[in-house]
Write a protein that binds this DNA or RNA. Structure first.
Lengths: 196, 196
DNA sequence: CAAATATAAATGAACGTTTGTTTATTTTAC
DNA sequence: GTAAAATAAACAAACGTTCATTTATATTTG
């Protein structure tokens, strides 16, 4: 029995990610991917059921990488300030080092694949995050607001700063490059808003 | 000379928006649009130069509507708190009443059309927003931080709350529906963070 | 140890459809 | 009657996917 060329599979994944990020969902095609990866179109159908399956598997793979990076050194038992800080370090670190993953996520979030990608997000990850917030409220480290308001203040600003950076520009087209200084200034303000 | 059927043009725009939002950029096609709008494919090429032109014009049209809605009752001379409050009212109002516009924007932002859409954003709009922030800093209603940090704290939380609402769910899949109560609770926290 | 067998991997070429766009023609309001 | 609007029909190119076939390797056999 012939063995599968794992390296070939890897190149397909890399080229698919690259092509999706650079050319968008409408610029992506199986034939173009096959050509870019140096394989026959038919080979793609050995690795994946169809085009949707390929895109979904790619999205889920990157999602798992993000989940794992986000949970590094993190525990839901931490104080809110400590936990939040680690989350910021992990998320900004991952996003800055994995621009393509970030872009793919933003792409799929606003596509028809959204529901299916979402359904595949690690249940464990969701549970841990939920527990972290409940603990913080119980320990009275958080003013009792709805989870959605917390989350929007705790993470949306960071996410937005990263977006400015990845876009290369911010409000009104101003060129922008991320800096740790900016991040920690912002972190202090977020804590100021959220602390009782 | 035969007159152009304005109503036909309107239906084309409506169906295009609907199709883009529902089926995504990769699910959108000129032939499908023509069929949905009850028009010949060739008619689309009387209205628009090509497919890109159609999508761009649609995006720019919705962008203008957002700009106009955002500037309603707003002046860059306002105090920071007042100006921010009006911005929140305007933006949340528009996004909640125009879910399709919101979705289209998110779609195009993460596509290859991004640059071109961005370039078309009202120069006047950018200038007004820039002036507003400069005024606020000068009047010492804002701690002197970079514009990007301000912006990320001042607007990203609201944007995120609207996204939770438009997605129908928030963190970990929790069902979520927007409420003014949530918004104003959040607004108070944002002001708390930004005020000296 | 080497030849034969089995079987999944991999392929190039092709399938029928759909794509964006154009052409030649007809319709319609002034 | 004129001229733009609108069309049906067609175009080549690209699409996702499948086909019949070849290639490579792990296992079986002598």
């Amino acid at each position: 029995m012939r063995t599968r060329d794992e390296n070939k599979e890897l190149i397909v994944r890399e080229k698919a990610l690259e092509m999706l990020v650079l050319q968008g969902l409408d610029g992506f095609s199986m034939q173009k991917l096959a050509k870019a990866a140096g394989v026959s179109p038919a080979t793609l159908y050995i690795y994946y059921q169809d085009k949707e399956d390929l895109i979904l598997k790619l999205g889920i793979q990157e999602g798992k990488r993000l989940s794992e990076a986000t949970l590094k050194n993190f525990s839901p038992e931490m104080s809110f300030a400590d936990g939040l800080k680690i989350q910021w370090i992990n998320r900004s670190g991952f996003w800055l080092e994995n621009k393509q993953s970030y872009d793919l996520f933003e792409l799929l979030r606003n596509s028809t694949y959204r529901e299916k990608i979402f359904a595949a997000i690690n249940v464990e990850f969701r549970a841990i995050m939920g527990q972290f917030v409940r603990n913080a409220i119980q320990k009275e480290e958080l003013i009792p607001l709805t989870l959605e308001v917390y989350w929007s203040i705790a993470f949306a600003p960071l996410h937005n700063l990263i977006r400015f950076h990845n876009d290369g520009r911010s409000v009104g087209g101003r060129p922008y490059t991320f800096s740790e200084k900016d991040m920690w200034e912002m972190f202090a303000l977020v804590l100021k808003a959220l602390k009782p």
